[in-house]
Amino acid sequence: MTTDLPARMLRLLSLLQTRREWSGAELAGRLGVTTRTIRRDIDRLRELGYPVEGTTGHAGGYRLASGTAMPPLILDDDEAIAIAVALRTAAGHLTGMEETSLRALAKLEQVLPVRLRTQVAALHQATATIGWERRGPRVDPATLSALAAACRDHETVAFDYTTRHGTTASRRVEPHHLVASSGLWYLLARDTERDDWRVFRLDRVTDPTPTRRRFVPGAVPGQDPAAYVARKIATAPVRHRALVTVHAPADTVRRRTGALADRVRPLDDTTCAVDCSGDSLSRIAQTLAAVDADYTLDADPEVTDHLHRTAERTRRALHTAVRTGGGPPKAPADHGPHG
């Protein structure tokens, strides 16, 4: 039984922050007090500025709502370390979040206990990130946050969506899951007007607006959101068709190309069919180069033209290297993996 008032208040606040909604009886059972005491403690939290709302239903309940300011959060040790590391490593992955992430990290590290600050510092010192230039679109963090909240709260959301052809239309959906794949974010949602499941790229979503209309989430086809989105990505219409038969095992080609599993189909133990189709000619060429095995190609003319141009540039570069006496630089002496 939690008899110390400050400790009980902190425990109550921590519980409210871990779940969308609690009944008064559940909170009383967790804290070992009466529901009357819970009501008084909730009033104390409200006086301190925490926006605790009462909910309707069979027995009523409480939830921590969004307020006009960010209240203090209660984090356990593992949560604090996870947030600190995530803020450091994720900075730069979302548009406009680099400086904000570092400011938040500075605030968090300032109040971390010494034992946790030491652990976080050790992780930072022992790890490094290769700063490859990011390709492709990046997601607006406000869009990502709004859709994540809508998924959590089972709230219908409206937004404008730009298709791969450049046309824009208003959509109204029941959001279920956010899925990240190959540097892109996708929203898996049920389109209410089309009465069907749809996958939306978040970089093409603008102005997501909650409608305050709740829905009861249905079962995702196949029960696996990530697998469903992967299948949709693999079978989505693309600008350029490129199908190859590769003289290498399917598992080997998957490892070399990083292709989605549904895009590599084994024909026998030593041969597989690979769908390299896509919207980017250069990416198709990169995938074919990564195959690193003999293959036969069935592709649209613009794909073969691009490959011919690429091959011709390579041939000219090699010819120039031969005429000027160039070639690959000599490898340094191999002193083993440890120098």
Rank of each mutant, 00 (worst) to 15 (best):
M1Y: 03
T3H: 10
D4M: 03
D4V: 11
P6Q: 06
R8I: 04
M9P: 00
L16E: 03
R20K: 14
S23V: 03
E26N: 06
R30E: 15
L31F: 04
V33R: 14
T34V: 06
T34G: 14
I38M: 02
R39Q: 08
R44S: 13
L45K: 04
E47K: 12
Y50V: 05
P51W: 06
E53V: 04
G54I: 05
T55V: 08
H58I: 12
A65V: 04
S66C: 07
T68H: 13
A69N: 08
A69T: 15
L73R: 12
L75K: 04
A84Y: 04
T89W: 11
A90L: 13
A91S: 15
A91F: 07
G92L: 05
H93F: 14
H93I: 12
L94Q: 09
T95Q: 15
T95L: 13
M97C: 09
S101E: 03
R103A: 13
A104Y: 05
K107R: 14
L108F: 01
L108A: 01
E109H: 06
Q110Y: 10
L112A: 03
V114F: 10
L116Y: 09
L116E: 06
T118W: 02
Q119V: 12
Q119P: 00
V120W: 02
A121N: 14
A122Y: 06
L123H: 08
H124I: 03
A128N: 09
T129G: 04
G131W: 10
W132K: 07
W132A: 14
P137I: 08
P137R: 13
D140R: 06
A150V: 07
V157A: 01
A158N: 11
T162R: 15
H165N: 14
H165F: 09
G166V: 04
A169T: 15
S170H: 15
R171N: 05
L178H: 05
G183A: 04
L184P: 01
W185I: 08
Y186K: 06
L187D: 07
D195K: 08
R201K: 10
R204T: 06
T206I: 11
P210H: 04
R212L: 12
V216S: 14
V216H: 11
A219K: 13
V220T: 11
P221D: 01
D224Q: 12
A227Q: 11
Y228I: 08
A230G: 12
A234G: 02
T235H: 09
V238S: 13
R241P: 01
L243G: 00
T245S: 08
P249D: 05
D251H: 11
T252I: 10
R254I: 02
R255I: 08
A259F: 09
L260E: 07
A261L: 13
R265Y: 00
D269T: 12
S280W: 00
L281E: 07
R283D: 11
R283V: 09
R283L: 14
A285H: 09
D292P: 03
D294G: 15
Y295S: 00
T296I: 05
L297K: 00
D298W: 01
D298Q: 06
A299T: 01
A299G: 02
D305I: 00
H306P: 00
T310Y: 04
R315S: 12
T320S: 08
T324C: 03
G326K: 08
K330L: 15
A333F: 07
H335R: 13
